[in-house]
Design a protein around this nucleic acid. Structure first.
Lengths: 338, 338
DNA sequence: TTGTAAGCGTTATCAT
DNA sequence: ATGATAACGCTTACAA
């Protein structure tokens, strides 16, 4: 019925190869593993037979025996966010080259889903975990308790109290720069869509914003700090409030929330950037395509992913800071009649 | 040194629980697996001890023993494309609920990477594979040879000759509708950015485009069919050529290529939609945000992912067609003056 | 250079 | 209801 008999039985084992060759599984294992303690002839014979029989190694068995796997788990809030999918891309890039595969979990910003994902990864005895926690996530202690001794690299959204490698953006410096830019463009009442204060990244951005104001002699006004989820809808609401509050600019700690704010401004007939300046955060693809194009504090997600992967591979436990880069586009650039 | 001794040794096994309780691993296994053939008291004792010792099951061992895993591999060209990350999201949604986890691989449109990914998944003895092949991918036969008897669900970009479940968009109907829309908006010389003819999805879109033209009595003109990669740059080039060729509209089989075409039109001072209509494919987020906003043939990636996952779970081998939906925005909507 | 044998942690079969 | 035992496929001392 079936021409290539070997391929059909599907699950060829090293024992099958061994018996076919009249040798033992150990030798086959060694030959296939590139162990030098095996005759050149034998190795060739084994390799040929393996190919002929369509052998594919069973990494499950191999992992069990070796007590380790070549899978790295990546846990992110949502994979369809460009920022995160690029982080994943960068990490995968480095990890694949090092012989690792990647198991991706998304938490959809749910703390319970995060716990479940971490537990699942632990149960697979993954070699390590790269984590960016859900916005309202549990404490660092809890993560550590689930993960036990599994190596952990945190990125972007990190628990500062949790030991181990961390890759973070230069949030404070970046927000400082973004806010200074708005000031230098002669905006004077600058509010901020600050994000969730449960996450260190947003705390730092707020700090940078505040620092910029104060260094320019502008008093910090908590009434125009909008602590919100950084999605389009909440950005829209913050935009409305900022208008009410007499703001003429907003620094948003997110990109989609900046978009929402611009929705509100357009709706109210307020011109951007002439009457109102907006700078967002994260260089999502749409930011350069919308009208007015959105000035934004670009992160380097691909590099962040690469850095996280390298930190895992190196077993590092330090904190690496990835610079941010202010990309000035239309939404914050007043015409030059200064 | 360490307070919670159990948590520190990290790898508690059912044998540890068994000895701690003075029973055998078999009983512990049964208790944990919810096997009814175990006394209620014992079950409770085991569960408590397991919790107390911080036991986490070793799914690697379990998988090896059971000869199957609860991992489903998903292979896509690039995860950062919204279309694919939404497919993944939909599939993950369904699969997680069914107790499966998802191993994601991206091929970056490279046939070799695809082979490697499939082989890796096979080596992990995944329960199944959901695949959207790289644009210049190998033949269906080759896929089947690598995967052996591993269940396969193809989606979006499928090999028609390969047996098994397929989830596809209504490409022909959709492209027909998109092109008819351009015709009804009184565009008359309509070109197309057709994509790679090595992929069935694009072949079908081209067929739909052609069908629409012919049904409207417009001759099909191969000289304004631009078979290209559907990225922004090639879209730009196609846009330039379409202008040269005297077109007044383009149906693009991709979204980014439509964007590129509009780049070219803007550069040449040609007004969209007044002088030139454009419809793209795939409802990427940016399409609604750009100016002019891009009319596009929306797919339903999330639903496609769900359908693929369900097809896997059901062991189905039929072809399911996910409808497409024309979203008319500015880029193809001429002002209403007759 | 190769074979023998034990074991990774779990589950399934067969006894008891 | 529980225990003993083997097995999943692979790796690795240790022995030969």
């Amino acid at each position: 019925m079936c021409k290539r008999l070997y391929l059909c039985s599907d699950m060829v084992t090293i024992t099958d190869i061994a018996t076919a060759l009249g040798i033992t599984p150990s030798t086959v294992s060694r030959a296939l593993a590139g162990n030098p303690r095996v005759k050149e002839d034998t190795r060739r014979a084994v390799e040929e037979k393996a190919r002929e029989m369509g052998y594919e190694p069973n990494v499950v068995a191999s992992n069990l025996r070796k007590g380790q796997s070549r899978i790295v788990g990546i846990v992110v809030p949502r994979i369809h966010r460009e920022f995160f999918s690029n982080v994943i891309g960068g990490a995968e890039n480095v990890l694949n080259q090092a012989g690792y595969n990647v198991l991706i979990c998304q938490t959809l910003e749910s703390a319970e889903a995060e716990v479940k994902a971490l537990r699942t990864l632990k149960n697979y005895r993954v070699a390590g975990v790269l984590l960016s926690h859900a916005i309202n996530s549990l404490s660092g202690n809890h993560v550590r308790e689930i993960l036990g001794t599994t190596p952990l690299v945190q990125f972007d959204r990190v628990f500062p109290d949790l030991p181990g490698a961390k890759i973070v953006g230069a949030n404070c410096e970046g927000a400082f720069q973004a806010t200074m830019h708005l000031i230098s463009e002669r905006y004077r009442r600058i509010g901020t869509i600050a994000g969730y204060m449960s996450s260190q990244a947003y705390v730092e951005r707020l700090a940078g914003y505040r620092l910029a104001l104060e260094s320019a002699g502008i008093p910090y006004d908590p009434s125009i700090v909008y602590e919100n989820a950084i999605v389009r809808e909440t950005g829209y609401e913050a935009g409305l409030k900022a208008i009410e509050a007499g703001c003429d600019a907003l620094y948003s700690a997110g990109a989609f929330s900046a978009l929402g704010a611009i929705d509100a401004l357009k709706e109210k007939g307020i011109r951007v950037p002439e009457d109102f300046g907006v700078v967002g955060t994260s260089n999502e693809g749409f930011t350069s395509l919308m009208t007015p194009s959105l000035s934004t504090l670009g992160q380097h997600p691909f590099e962040m992913g690469e850095a996280a992967a390298r930190a895992f591979l190196a077993g590092s436990s330090g904190t690496e800071v990835i610079p941010m880069e202010l990309i000035v586009r239309q939404s914050s650039k007043r015409s030059n009649n200064g």
